[in-house]
Design a protein around this nucleic acid. Structure first.
Lengths: 307, 307
DNA sequence: AACAGCGTTGCGTTGAATGCAACCCCAAAA
DNA sequence: TTTTGGGGTTGCATTCAACGCAACGCTGTT
């Protein structure tokens, strides 16, 4: 148990939740695409492989989205066959989907390698959304400074679909680091950013979420539930929440809330880090740095802590 | 003719073009969606309306993309019927498309209004792309300062598909202002940002582009073409290009290039403004401010002017 | 209470997405 | 030079799923 951390900072109090923030669920890890084995098995699509589970019954749209999702920051350039193999679709299908996307500027092809990449049309699509996410841009320089200061990765998370989702991230300068892609989602109760968001919900709703399994808490029973609620309160008082290797033996995390002008929580600042690099003391200092950054963002957003 | 503007600043010289930058075409105005009349005519889809031109032959994918495109920064919340009316599809079709998107987090629904908005899944999709567009984030504070200083809208444009496309924009504080949505594309030769990009191409390629009509120049003939090429050179010397009501009687614009470390052009800073607010003198000062901002961004990108 | 507008759902038809295989193209190997 | 191979595209027939329709459920209004 790592509960006994010093309560410094002055915490935040239970606010009501913000507007456009809704519900879902999922595991935590790099989060593989819902469909298709990451790569392995080139999928020998012969007569007896009508479509194994994966792409089966998937509508064009779902397939198309899967195609778009196969582009990542690490591998921005992909070939038709490559994509087809990964998501378990036929070459020709993928080729046609890509052709449509290309014509709509959602993908473009690298002139030399002849492979595909996401096109700038995506920006246009996501534009209206990006415009709304004022927090992102405000947060960016603050996160940068935070990562500079702590040396660790920092991220801006929002609560969406009962999951904590990453909308901005600055990579740690260290070799070993926690790095989740933009859009990664987390729903473990013990994840520090999830704690921050749940602390802003009222207790009954938290109970319901945990009981329903939307938010996962290992060894869930009534006792554990109440202990968890207590822990949330402590986090509020402390000003930041932590996860000391509780979701994964190798990871720790601290998180702190960002509020809007109404005192509603709109985001949280998260610092994930490899456990070996963080002792309980350094965890506390990370927590304070995190809280500090979150406050800065809150201020720049014209927000204020609740109460 | 507004050619005789003073040549101050020290200009930039002809660089080679940057990597992922390709080709297309289109008109200039707010650029209505390729498909479907903006709104008018609710489309009385009766038996004798098989599908008039618009959605005709449109694949599911194209329809789906059209649905996503109907969300704008001005109208982020849309209902099924509303969307269906605009893009000329059946309610049920749109409803089903949205259902799929919702399940993939690409749209979500506003709890109270029950209407749809873009979902954060879009961020995840566009993420790999956003990560690449380092220029955007670097440019943001600079643009903000630029708009602050000039009072006008400022934008970051990139060259994509033989069109100049907006990837970042700060709105003017004035009531009357030029405002194009993120992702808006321009292909008129006289548009100032287009001039900046073309000035970075070699003359032969520019000739080809103009002759092919990919880039539009009113009254195009050999003479006009050579005059245009000369104008590009002047822009380079001056350090910024301008468009003094030449694409539209009510608009003016100035633009200046942003370079990467190799001296390749990667973007341009554009200040569009209503003509009535800008004299030739103020145009020059806008141009200088623009150039200044572009240089700042270049520097922060670790870039340098060519030569 | 009746109405009107909106979103969803079942159903039958038909059109379009799929898988396949042949083909094209480029590049590396022979 | 020819040959071979991998990757991408295209024509075709099949079949499945997307479409339009209309009926329904819901909510808020007159």
């Amino acid at each position: 148990m790592t509960h006994m951390l010093i309560a410094l900072g002055q915490g935040w109090a239970c606010p009501n939740k913000k507007s456009h923030i809704v519900t879902i669920m999922t595991p935590a890890e790099p989060r593989a695409e819902p469909r298709a084995e990451p790569r392995a098995e080139p999928r020998v699509i012969t007569s007896d492989t009508p479509a194994n589970g994966d792409s089966k019954g998937a509508s064009v749209l779902e397939n198309a989205i899967a195609v778009l999702r196969s582009f990542t920051a690490e591998e921005p350039l992909l070939g038709v066959t490559e994509i087809a193999g990964r998501i378990g679709l036929h070459k020709s299908t993928v080729s046609r989907i890509l052709a449509t996307f290309e014509q709509e500027h959602l993908v473009e092809r690298d002139p030399e390698s002849r492979r595909f990449r996401l096109g700038l049309g995506m920006i246009a699509l996501a534009g209206p959304l990006l415009a709304e996410l004022e927090e992102r841009r405000v947060a960016y320089p603050v996160l940068r400074e935070l990562s500079e200061r702590t040396g660790e990765t920092s991220a801006l998370m929002v609560w969406n679909g009962n999951e904590s989702m990453c909308v901005e991230q600055i990579a740690s300068r260290h070799q070993v680091k926690h790095l989740a892609p933009l859009g990664a989602r987390y729903n473990e109760a013990l994840s520090s950013s999830v704690q921050v968001f749940l602390a802003a919900e009222d207790a009954d709703r938290v109970r319901k979420l945990l009981r329903s399994g939307s938010i996962t808490l290992p060894g869930l029973d009534e006792e554990a539930l109440e202990a968890y609620l207590l822990r949330l309160q402590e986090s509020v008082k402390r000003g930041w929440a932590f996860n000391f290797g509780e979701t994964s033996i190798e990871e720790v995390g601290v998180a702190s809330p960002v509020f809007d002008h109404r005192g509603d929580i709109v985001a949280s600042v998260l610092i994930p880090a490899p456990k070996f690099r963080v002792s309980q003391d350094t965890l506390a200092s990370l927590g304070e740095a995190c809280q500090d950054a979150a406050r800065k963002i809150t201020t720049r957003l014209g927000g204020r802590a609740p109460h």
